[in-house]
Design a binder for these strands. Structure first.
Lengths: 339, 339
DNA sequence: TTGTACGCGTTATCAC
DNA sequence: GTGATAACGCGTACAA
């Protein structure tokens, strides 16, 4: 095993000083051609690479980005990570991923772990427990320390930082409008409690579309689950009592499961009942029938988040004005609605 | 903005030496109660936290694990990451995720980036391009430098390191056997070229099950796609020529798409034709009909990988014997096969 | 043209 | 009981 070689090692071997080696490897004009060539050849031979940690300590820049998300087994979040990775890597940054698993405590612990010098900035989406609690002190502390933060998707207005979201309200509005235009009158909404920022927005978009079209909002047609996790029981009960001709759901899984339920009852999709979900993942594409969805453009969101963060990290002067970027959702029409 | 406070800051404020502060904060017996209390109170007040980077430089331990995988928008890999995260986090390690996106070059670049001091060890699954090329020098270099590596799922025998896989051959064998036991005679296999270690194993298991049951292996019933990415055209062609009564696929997506194709032709699943896939993800659970699959236990795999890696990282004496852990696959029976 | 000295933040050793 | 010093690996201002 050949251990990593350092400047000191090279200096000792070649009987020059460390700084000479350092300069030579940077091709400094100060050093004579002879010495430079000798040192560079030796360095190449022993595959010298500067130690990232030492450089981080010196520069107070780690070139690491901390990403804290509630879950990773969700298509949307994986696409965001991919977008972040793509941009960050191109800029020479690494991505440290931490999962809060929807837990406030784990979110706090993870941030504290990373905030002690491991990263140059955070990109994060809030855990549901955090949004429920409404406690954002861990975020405030971090920003007060001067560590840049970019929030995406699940955000809060209580923290001053850059944000990236899609226009969830518009997405729900577009979807609902489409259902109405196709003659649907009894449109159900399967969502979660309003403490989740995205669900709140989507619910508003749904209601606005109904009232804009002169339809009544019937609260009994709105099912609010407690989390984004699957709750088969509640959805089953809902469809036992409610007779509807269209359903909008805030994610893919709720939609696919709901479709299955009504299919079991003998209803035909989209003839008897239409479905639209959120998130354009594999499930939507390969469901039977394939799913019409509001695409959230996770990869784009990740890229934009990474760009905003790195801009902040690399800007000399402290940024004082924060911006919120709102991406436009798109309706991807497939077979769960009438064409 | 209150910047991070250092030992030096505290020392200056309290008019003591840096080493006194350091010791006091570690509750050293050497320091008087008075001084300790004063220093600890001050540190708490200003929320002092030691700088990870400085500690890493000193200890030559980063408490970071590098994870390099081919893709993240795959359920299997996300579950592995989750397992790694879970174990690593509990041990105080962070997880740096890098995506090779199935590219050899990106795999090499990512490893080089991380190998220069950013991480204590690697957990990785080979990109398809790497397996196709058969070039593992980047892995060998890293292990020669004394950086521990754990390979999972897509592995190679050419690198000496710990490995974690499931018994892919057994998984395919179990699945094929089940189809045979249900009276199926014409069983197709949709897989990828043999350069992918997992596909090769699965193909062997499939063939072994057939011959063990006295059935002929009919090469025309085996479709070998070039990658794990979806290739709708090839699959469509395959089902146009081949008449089979059961299909085994090496992933979920191939399976779900194939089911759709035969359904369009009017075949009933599982009455006329049965399906079994690999990977127990959302698609399998929510497909219509739901999918019988060989579960790969990704989360478990991640945990085991992390455990093996951290054991190696933390073991004083250099480990010289490497082990390969083989996890058992499980058949999850759902509605795409006869019960 | 080359080398010395210092600092990044921490800890461990040794001297007072 | 407290403090000075060296070391981790690197870069750079300054001195020779």
């Amino acid at each position: 095993m050949k251990a990593k070689i350092t400047l000191k090692d090279i200096a000792r071997e070649l009987d020059v000083s460390i700084s000479t080696v350092s300069k030579a490897l940077k091709n400094s004009e100060e050093i004579s051609r002879d010495t430079k060539e000798k040192i560079q050849a030796f360095a190449k031979l022993y595959n010298y690479k500067p130690n990232n940690i030492a450089i981080s300590l010196k520069n107070k820049r780690t070139k690491n980005i901390g990403v804290v998300i509630p879950a990773i087994v969700h298509h949307f979040f994986t696409t965001v990570i991919r977008g972040i990775e793509k941009y960050a890597n191109a800029k020479g940054y690494n991505v440290i991923v931490c999962l809060s698993e929807e837990s406030f405590d784990r979110e706090v612990i993870n941030m504290e772990m990373l905030a002690n010098g491991s990263i140059d900035g955070f990109i994060m989406s809030l855990s549901s427990e955090t949004q429920l609690k409404g406690d954002y002190n861990h975020l405030k502390e971090v920003t007060e320390q001067g560590i840049p933060v970019v929030l995406f998707d699940r955000i809060t207005n209580e923290v001053d930082c850059d944000k990236v979201i899609i226009d969830d309200q518009m997405g729900a509005y577009m979807a609902t409008k489409k259902l109405i235009d196709q003659g649907r009158k009894k449109i159900a909404l399967i969502t979660t409690d309003d403490y989740l920022s995205v669900s709140k927005e989507r619910t508003q978009g749904y209601m606005k579309a109904l009232t804009d079209s002169g339809l009544q909002v019937d609260e009994s047609r709105i099912l609010k689950l407690s989390t984004m996790e699957m709750d088969e029981e509640s959805i089953r009960n809902f469809f036992q009592t409610e007779k509807v001709d269209a359903v909008l759901c805030v994610n893919e899984i709720f939609t696919v499961f709901s479709m299955r339920l009504v299919q079991e009852k003998g209803l035909r999709i989209p003839d008897d009942i239409s479905f639209i979900g959120f998130t354009d993942g594999l499930l939507s594409k390969y469901a039977n029938p394939s799913l019409t969805v509001v695409a959230q453009h996770g990869e784009k969101m990740g890229e934009v988040s990474a760009q905003m963060l790195i801009d902040q990290v690399e800007s000399e002067n402290e940024v004082e004005s924060f911006q919120t970027k709102i991406l436009e959702p798109t309706l991807v029409v497939r077979d769960s609605t009438i064409n």
